[in-house]
């Protein structure tokens, strides 16, 4: 029973990271109808920036905050400069632009910081709680993610900007008519997504080690979480991310051969959800008129 609880709690911790990535993915999907395949590499790059700042400042929290702020600004700039020109281009062009971004960030990180693994210290104290069930880092990850998600929720629910962003995503034309600057709302969405991705990256770095390919698996689980929860429901994406984390940990332990097939599990989950329940568990079914 202890093992089961340990697995579940560790699953919730890694699931929190997937939830962050899933939320970032869904945020951009809602606004633009696209999956940002570069989300993982952008988060990885932000994490490297945090690591580089940590080398000079020596304070992990300070570097973390600066890195998140920089990611927010970088996200806005990327949307304005790189993604905007293909805004109305066919879906193929947009996917290729995302793939281009993915290549740029992955190889830039390798170029700047080399392909050796780095260690980023945890944001949380080493000996905080005394428990055999969960490590302090994992507990910190779960609580911190919940806090971030709560703030994001309040931002979208109770602020004017949040409302404008939701309006721009739901109905760009009407939003424009009532004076919402739809283009800037999209850019802001990219900024927020990139900042949330950066948070996910810094939280997961002490678990998976910091290297240029660290996020490809995490991004896949994030996608799986987003799809499972419902790709047009931010709350669903968070729930989906947590569920994927827990399910993955159970599968690793209890399914024969599961320990070496984590990514295959994500593949099966993605294809399965897309085939049998494309709207996800909490999403709306979208009916397209032709």
């Amino acid at each position: 029973m202890d093992l089961f609880l340990q697995l579940t709690l560790a699953g919730l911790a890694i699931g929190s990271v997937y939830a962050c990535v899933a939320l970032a993915v869904v945020m951009i999907y809602q606004a633009t109808d696209h999956f940002n395949f570069a989300q993982g590499e952008m988060a990885m790059f932000s994490t490297f920036v945090a690591w580089a700042l940590y080398q000079t400042t020596g304070s992990i929290w300070l570097s973390f905050l600066i890195a998140v702020a920089l990611s927010f600004i970088a996200g806005i700039i990327i949307e304005r400069v790189i993604v905007k020109p293909v805004e109305n281009a066919p879906i193929f062009n947009q996917i290729i632009v995302f793939i281009g971004l993915l290549m740029i960030f992955n190889n830039l990180a390798g170029w700047f910081w080399e392909h050796t693994t780095k260690t980023l210290p945890s944001l949380f104290p080493e000996h905080g709680i005394d428990s055999t069930l969960i490590s302090t880092h994992n507990l910190g990850v779960i609580l911190f993610t919940l806090l971030i998600l709560g703030i994001t929720f309040c931002f979208f629910k109770f602020t004017k900007v949040g409302l404008a962003m939701r309006a721009a995503a739901a109905n760009p034309d009407s939003a424009r008519l009532v004076g919402v600057s739809v283009g800037w709302m999209l850019a802001l969405g990219w900024g927020l997504a990139s900042a949330i991705g950066a948070i996910g990256g810094v939280l997961v770095a002490p678990i998976v080690f910091l290297e240029p390919n660290m996020m490809s698996g995490v991004l896949l689980y994030g996608f799986a979480g987003a799809l499972l929860g419902g790709v047009n429901s931010p709350g669903g994406a968070v729930a989906g991310g947590l569920m994927v984390g827990v399910l993955e940990n159970w599968a690793r332990q209890y399914v024969p051969g599961g320990s070496e097939l984590g990514l295959t599990f994500a593949l099966v989950l993605i294809v399965g959800v897309l085939m049998f329940k494309p709207a996800g568990l909490f999403g709306r079914v979208i009916i397209k008129r032709v």
Binding site: F35, I95, G217, L261, A266
Partner: peptide
């Protein structure tokens, strides 16, 4: 379109792991 891109992305990421299975 997009979902197919996602499913094939998952396939590509999972491939090396499948080839390594004991």
């Amino acid at each position: 379109g997009l979902y197919l891109a996602l499913a094939t992305f998952a396939l590509a990421v999972a491939t090396p792991q499948i080839l390594k299975v004991d």
